[in-house]
């Protein structure tokens, strides 16, 4: 039984489709990465799962969470708010906006537990908050601090403490360390991984950074132009990429390459809604043929495979 099952997810705004036909599963305790560049639809996918899309952006398809007896797509706000923060928690890129600037840190951590009645009394929740703060390696005297008194890294650790406070079945992190310095990123990444491992929570980790995904996750989905173009175990996908986009992305991010020139992907990422029909990557792909004007079918299993007419490398083992 999977913790999260997304099937046939589409997201569109007015007549522009932004995410097409995304299938995505996360097993219990599994750490899955979703990588993509700007406009790939990775963040929209996360927001659809959370039911947090802007009003004019409409999702369709199915999002099921274990322990919840209804589909998250189309569920009303009251049902979703019972799930968010308890079964499903999130950490976003910008920690300042995720915290209430007028509330003390301790009260904010305790509040999440009180809302979902996971702790019987205010004092029990307070004690649990102190414990959570300790788990993210912050001193207990920060309980009485306000968000503006904390550094960016400290704030993100507080956000993480709040996210983990109710032992969620699934933690979704959207670019959680992009705004942080490298040394702070290292600590926050480790806390995220330790946090989900300790609770056997599943993790859906969204980022543009290949190295971060490879370090944090076991399995990865590569998104481009609103579609999942390739998925599989991290080691497989990153050592033996099948989709030409994955291949190009890996080559372009390899700064260790011999010589002074880097391998590039020609052109730029199109604006949302301006990706070509058929294979979304064909206008930047050196291997594209007329065949690529048709949408490539998915080859492989539901968790390991690719959608490319002219795949690179050898078949997955």
């Amino acid at each position: 039984m999977n913790v999260l099952e997304v099937a046939g997810l589409n997201v569109s705004v007015r007549d522009t489709t932004l995410v097409s036909d995304v299938d995505l599963t996360v097993g219990p305790g599994e750490r899955v990465g979703l990588i993509g560049e700007s406009g790939s639809g990775k963040s929209l996918t996360a927001l659809s799962i959370l039911g947090l899309l802007p009003e004019d952006v409409v999702p369709s398809g199915s999002v099921r969470l274990s322990g919840v007896d209804h589909d998250l797509i189309g569920a009303d706000e009251r049902a979703l708010s019972r799930i968010r923060g308890r079964d499903l928690a999130m950490v976003f890129q910008e920690p300042m906006t995720a915290l209430n600037p007028t509330m003390r840190i301790g009260d904010q951590i305790a509040e999440t537990m009180l809302i979902h009645h996971t702790h019987p009394t205010r004092s029990a929740a307070r004690a649990a908050a102190a414990d959570l703060l300790d788990r993210v390696q912050l001193p207990a005297d920060l309980l009485r601090a306000y968000p503006h008194q904390l550094s960016g890294g400290q704030r993100q650790r507080v956000v993480l403490a709040i996210a983990l406070s109710n032992d969620p079945a699934l933690l979704i992190c959207d670019e959680p360390t992009t705004a942080l310095d490298v040394t702070v990123q290292a600590l926050v990444l480790d806390l995220i991984v330790q946090g989900v491992v300790a609770r056997s929570s599943a993790l859906l980790f969204i980022t543009h950074d290949l190295a971060v995904v490879a370090t944090v996750c076991e399995r990865v989905l590569v998104m481009y132009g609103g579609r999942v173009v390739e998925s599989g175990p991290v080691h497989e996908v990153f050592t033996n990429p099948r989709h030409r986009y994955t291949q190009g992305l890996l080559a372009a991010s390899n700064l260790e390459a011999a010589g002074s020139r880097l391998t590039t992907i020609p052109g730029t990422v199109p604006a949302a809604g301006h990706f070509p029909s058929g294979c979304v990557f064909r206008n930047r792909c050196a291997h594209a043929t007329d065949l690529c004007a048709t949408t490539p079918a998915w080859s492989g299993t539901s968790t390991t495979g690719y959608a490319c007419h002219h795949p690179a490398g050898a078949p997955h083992a």
Partner: peptide, 27 residues
């Protein structure tokens, strides 16, 4: 030293480095 060890790289990750290896003491 702390800065260099904190940088996640594909090579290190694919040879089995975890997030703990990014931290200074073990890094």
């Amino acid at each position: 030293q702390r800065l260099v060890s904190a940088i996640p790289t594909l090579e290190r990750a694919l040879s089995g480095a975890t997030t703990t290896d990014l931290l200074p003491s073990k890094g």
